[in-house]
Design a protein around this nucleic acid. Structure first.
Length: 417
DNA sequence: TCTGGGGTCCTAGGACCC
DNA sequence: TCTGGGGTCCTAGGACCC
């Protein structure tokens, strides 16, 4: 048996954790640049705030209902996620961290599965303070179903889906659009042929599923029938691509400002590569104008570059990005977004040298290591490349940013006794 | 009228996830 | 005024090989 633990309204719960007075209040968290709603407390959901809704469109609702708004604070969420995961890990033998707020765990056939789930939930609540729901079932897809039921239709936040009859009952009621792996397009296609529930999906012949929903759809159906097709992946596989992309706080037009933004994104990609002990062969840069301004001139530029020798060197990756930028830049456009993607990633130790390489790679490695060490010690980007600049204009808008309570000593909560 | 058979590798686009 | 970011997997089709 497997269990899926999923944090309830994770980002909203993180923000609330340090402001207990918001416990029963509507809370929302915004995306980067304070753009869209990406998390809602139950109270905010009840008011009718939708996921992904642009914040400016619901200003009136926020005001009328006194909804508490937060800018996204990934440092905080990342740290609390780690704490939730380590608490769960302390109680199970095998676990897969599936996302920032979800983990699959193996539950041995030791009976009393519900009690074990309840104990886990209570331990996380006590040690970290984040509410989780847990679904227990024989396959991952059924765990997703069980978790959904646990979250929406139980008081305990625990649901066990083991008994064949109970599984059938659940699937006959479970809407196809809530299934894991069934997105908007597939829902439309399925509904057009009269499939509305998970159970009905399971009645379709395999060939049709295979043809229309690909092999992944077929695996989903098998999992719903209790045949495991997705195994527990205990170690995260090496990333195949790493992307750093941002919309700018304000639109920018000059190549100088773009250079600053792009070199910062490129440097971030390089840092992420080094953290994973990976090197990349390929670099892609893209630039885009504001697609929400249809009257303005629209442009989307994208171009890739292949390194002769794979690298994770900040200087090399920044330089290559700026070379592409020069080629993509058009001075008759106003830009809203840019991004750097490094791909074709291999492990650092599999470095294939190039016969005519001109860079002293050992020296560069030492420089990058020193850079990372210093910045990890005394603060992000305290030492950086000059080209990264001090520009303010393109930086994120984060007007409602909460403190990094759990990762910065100077932002820790002050308690008056 | 009618033109083989058996492969691999790469990429773009589309679907999905959180 | 104002609309996120970061990923994966699958498939079809093209280019190429013998």
């Amino acid at each position: 048996m497997l269990a899926l633990a999923d944090c309830n309204n994770f980002y909203a719960s993180c923000e609330r954790l340090f402001q207990p007075s918001l416990r029963d209040k509507p809370v929302v968290v915004l995306s980067n640049n304070d753009g869209c709603i990406i998390a809602r407390s139950n109270e905010a959901k009840a008011i009718g705030i939708k996921m992904g809704e642009p914040a400016f469109k619901i200003k009136h609702l926020i005001k009328e209902n006194n909804i508490h708004v937060f800018s996204t604070n990934f440092t905080l969420y990342g740290d609390l996620s780690k704490r939730v995961m380590s608490t769960l890990r302390s109680e199970v033998n095998r676990m897969e961290v599936y996302s920032i707020d979800e983990a699959f765990m193996s539950f041995k056939d030791e009976g009393r599965l519900e009690e074990k789930a309840l104990m886990l939930k209570q331990k996380v609540a006590k040690h970290v303070g984040i509410p989780v729901s847990i679904g227990v079932a024989p396959t991952k897809a059924l765990c997703k179903v069980a978790n959904h039921i646990a979250k929406k239709h139980t008081k305990t936040g625990i649901f066990l889906l083991e008994d064949k009859k109970l599984i059938e009952r659940a699937l006959k009621w479970f809407p196809v659009e809530e299934l894991w792996g069934i997105g908007r397009k597939y829902v439309k296609q399925l509904k057009s042929i009269g499939i509305h529930t998970a159970w009905e999906l399971c009645q379709i012949e395999d060939n049709w599923i295979r043809r229309n929903l690909t092999i992944r759809g077929l695996k989903l159906v098998k999992e719903l029938k209790g045949i495991p097709c997705f195994s527990l992946e205990e170690t995260a596989p090496r990333k195949k691509n790493i992307c750093t992309a941002r919309s700018f706080g304000k639109e920018i037009a000059t190549i100088q400002e773009l250079k600053e933004a792009v070199s910062n994104y490129a440097h971030t990609c390089a840092k992420k590569l080094r953290k994973e002990k990976s090197i990349c062969n390929k670099l892609t840069l893209f630039l885009s104008t504001n697609a929400y301004k249809p009257k303005a001139k629209q442009y989307y530029g994208v171009k890739s570059f292949t390194f002769d020798t794979p690298t994770s060197d900040s200087m090399e990756i920044v330089k290559a990005s700026l070379d592409i930028l020069k080629k993509l830049y058009r001075d008759d456009c106003i830009y809203k977004k840019a991004g750097v993607i490094v791909g074709d990633i291999v492990p650092e130790e599999q470095l294939q040298l190039h016969l005519f390489d001109t860079i002293d790679r050992n020296k560069r490695k030492a420089i990058n290591q020193a850079l990372d060490n210093i910045n990890n010690h005394i603060g992000k980007d305290k030492v950086k490349l000059a080209v990264q600049g001090y520009g303010r204009k393109w930086r994120l808008k984060q007007e409602k940013l909460s403190p990094c309570y759990s990762t910065r000593l100077d932002e820790a909560l002050t308690v008056l006794v």
